[in-house]
Design a protein around this nucleic acid. Sequence first.
DNA 1: CTGAAAGCGCTAACAC
DNA 2: GTGTTAGCGCTTTCAG
Lengths: 340, 340
Amino acid sequence: MDKEITIYDIAKEVGLSPTTVSRALSNHPRVKENTKEKILTAAKKMGYQSNIFASSLRKKRSKSIGVIIPKLNSPFQSSVMAGMEEIATQAGYNLVISQSTESLEKEITNATTMFNSRVDGLLVSKAGTTDDIEHFSPFFKKHIPVLFFDRVPENNNCTGVVINNTQAIYDATSHLIKEGCKRIVHVLGNLKINVYADRLKGYKYALLDHGIVFEEKNVINSDLGEESGDRIVEQILTLNPKPDGLLVSNDACAASCLMALKRKNIRIPEDIAIVGFNNDLISRMVEPNLSTINYPSYHMGEVAMKNLINHLDDEDHEILQKTNTITLRHELIIRGSSKR
Amino acid sequence: MDKEITIYDIAKEVGLSPTTVSRALSNHPRVKENTKEKILTAAKKMGYQSNIFASSLRKKRSKSIGVIIPKLNSPFQSSVMAGMEEIATQAGYNLVISQSTESLEKEITNATTMFNSRVDGLLVSKAGTTDDIEHFSPFFKKHIPVLFFDRVPENNNCTGVVINNTQAIYDATSHLIKEGCKRIVHVLGNLKINVYADRLKGYKYALLDHGIVFEEKNVINSDLGEESGDRIVEQILTLNPKPDGLLVSNDACAASCLMALKRKNIRIPEDIAIVGFNNDLISRMVEPNLSTINYPSYHMGEVAMKNLINHLDDEDHEILQKTNTITLRHELIIRGSSKR
DNA sequence: CTGAAAGCGCTAACAC
DNA sequence: GTGTTAGCGCTTTCAG
């Protein structure tokens, strides 16, 4: 293993001080163009590689950003990640990623790891199951910005990037009602997660505003997995009278329900109209095509990352202090599964 | 901002030397259990956080692993990532992720960034378009292990984790032939990518072994996007006689073709039998269900990461030196789209 | 089993 | 514009 080249070696080579070399390398304005060039040339020639550890140690910044998400292998979340990566790379930040696999315990471990690796900022989509954000307090104490997206904790003063879930499901529900549905079933996930709690609200409000009585039995809790269609459909069919509308909180599960219903010879949308959520690929591939809510996942990643980086690069670090919630635009996309 | 606690502070507190504190903190065997405990307690009480920059600077290791993939938002690749994350986190390594978005230029930039952030090892799925791996030479020179997965460069002595793409398509082709197909079209991506080149071979071999003449016009190049079905189908239908089998190199695109064919009132599998690739969710959601090759993506992530980490943790760093290729098991899954 | 001392490579005061 | 100096906080010989 050949020895590492340091700024001292370069300094010796060009007959200048290490300081000047350091300054030249980081493009400091008070270095003569001439010498800057000389140094850069020497650096390249000697195969110099800046030592980021030493630099970080001195500057107390890692130029890296941590992300904690529930699951990497989800169309929605991986798309958010892609947006984040784009922006981070562009801005010269490294992305350190870990997943909580929906476990609070793992989320806590991940947070600790991120803290110990001294990320400059943290982006989190909560594992759900609780609003507890105590495990991020080391960040808060050290004023390391933490920004939540999609799944945000309630009742706190962290910044969050979200869509208006209440309004989205309100729109979807209203649409179904307009299409003539009277008995709409809503399938959603863990109500401890803001996303689903908000959607339930939107569902209730829409019913209310259209003079339909809300009934507890029309709300089904599910893991929203791609395999759960049969189970959900079975449960739906015990209802009497049978429902004529179905609102499922993600497209994979909605598609699974759609397939299960078709296997039971129930016609979509005539017998039951369906609306999903996310606008994943799958929504365009099932038959009939699934109506859904377009969730701007990639864009959400971009926006979250942009705001975090702006905050970090801002001299006064006050951008996020002043921002509570950033709400992105969603959109109801009506397709064959609900248009009758 | 309150001052950081260092091992010196702890040393003063417990009346020992920084050296001993350092040793205790890293669980060095030659420290008395008693003092170890005392130090750990003090550390916790004082809110000590190890400074990873200083540690890395000294030890010349970052405890982080870089990953460069073409696209984060792909079902296949995000699943690989999930497997990698699992293992890396478990072993105490951070995952630094960046995407090349299929551009060699970005891949080069990413490689440089990874090199400069001094990852201990690198996992790469090539952007394709070239076998050039010159941009990884800084890693090679410094003996930083680089392990390729899925899309591996040919003709080099790097370790790669792959499936036997040739055999996979051989199996699929043979299956179609057994189902009575005589004119099988193969849709694949950029032939500069090993994955597709290998598959083309498998296709040719299978035809040969079953006495069917290979025809150039039956090979269609595509970006394999989820929107390309119409275009591909149009092209297929210009063939005369019409093909009766279709082999598409990924499920999203296969599904898209399937839909397009159905729109043209072509029956699946009676008129044309279809086999996809990857076993993505979509393959189980279209009708008829798509036959496909199960590609163990999550497992591939695990295996690649495990081997890299074993190598890093191995005293002699020779694990990867001795390994050329790790081939995972694939499996042909036969479903409605090709069973007749 | 513990400690003293040196240094990893860089940057930021502070001089000139 | 450039240089001197002093650490950042940790680990690792080498000594005892």
